[in-house]
């Protein structure tokens, strides 16, 4: 094992990591936002809306993420062209980001839904009694409490998402793993680069899950 060329590759690897993190942050933000809307739709009294949201969730939960990433890479340019009438060059980053957002939204939706359902019905009644309408009750009373409760689960899901970002290898995006692999190929030190990448992923995920555990026990105490 010879780890010498990793040092000279560090700037590249850092670039790769930045891309991974950028993808992660946007996907988490978009996924949670879309997931929350889906959760509200699933819980809505409008049968059609709730059916459609339910279908969306079940659909994305039953197909592989890798399929979604690959598919979107192929079709997002077409979709845009149909929508706008012109061909737009869409990079792998944008198509992957859309894929992650839409895919993860299905998973976030289930977490948010459980979170909303865990808030006692009395809270909603109290909000209505004060004269708040549905949107105000959700935005000001239910969601803030629900998000507090489900923060650990949302973070847990985001750690999984962090690991899943490595799948953009399929569409040739130069994220952290792909950078490590390609530098490894060039220098002939593939083993070292892959192990290095593995260690970095492990350290980041491990620390993040420790933080989640801490948060969980803290919230558990706070609820008493």
């Amino acid at each position: 094992m010879d780890f010498s060329s990793i040092v000279s590759a560090l700037p590249d690897l850092l670039q790769g990591m930045l891309l991974t993190l950028k993808l992660l942050v946007f996907a988490v933000a978009g996924g949670i936002a879309l997931g929350t809307l889906l959760a509200l739709a699933r819980l809505s009294s409008n049968r059609l809306l709730s059916f459609l949201a339910g279908f969306y969730v079940n659909y994305f939960r039953s197909i592989p993420l890798l399929l979604v990433i690959t598919w979107f890479y192929f079709i997002v340019p077409f979709m845009l062209a149909w929508a706008t009438g012109k061909m737009h060059p869409v990079g792998a980053f944008a198509s992957s980001l859309v894929a992650f957002m839409m895919f993860e939204a299905a998973y976030y939706c289930e977490i948010v839904r459980a979170g909303i359902q865990s808030i006692p019905k009395g809270q909603v009644n109290a909000a209505y009694a004060l004269g708040l309408n549905y949107h105000q009750a959700m935005r000001l009373v239910v969601l803030p409490q629900a998000f507090r409760k489900m923060a650990p689960l949302l973070l847990q899901q985001s750690i999984i998402l962090f690991q899943d970002t490595a799948l953009v290898y399929a569409v040739g995006l130069m994220d952290f793993l792909n950078t490590a692999r390609s530098r490894g190929d060039i220098t002939g030190q593939l083993h070292e680069f892959l192990l290095f990448a593995g260690v970095i992923y492990f350290v980041l995920s491990f620390i993040a899950s420790r933080i989640v555990l801490r948060l969980q026990s803290k919230l558990a105490v706070g609820q008493n």
Partner: peptide, 22 residues
Amino acid sequence: VNLFRNVPLLVQLFVWYFIVPD
């Protein structure tokens, strides 16, 4: 559990495919 849950599936696959056979 800690090791196998904190390393991405794809990295694990590369380890089994590129490294372990050697």
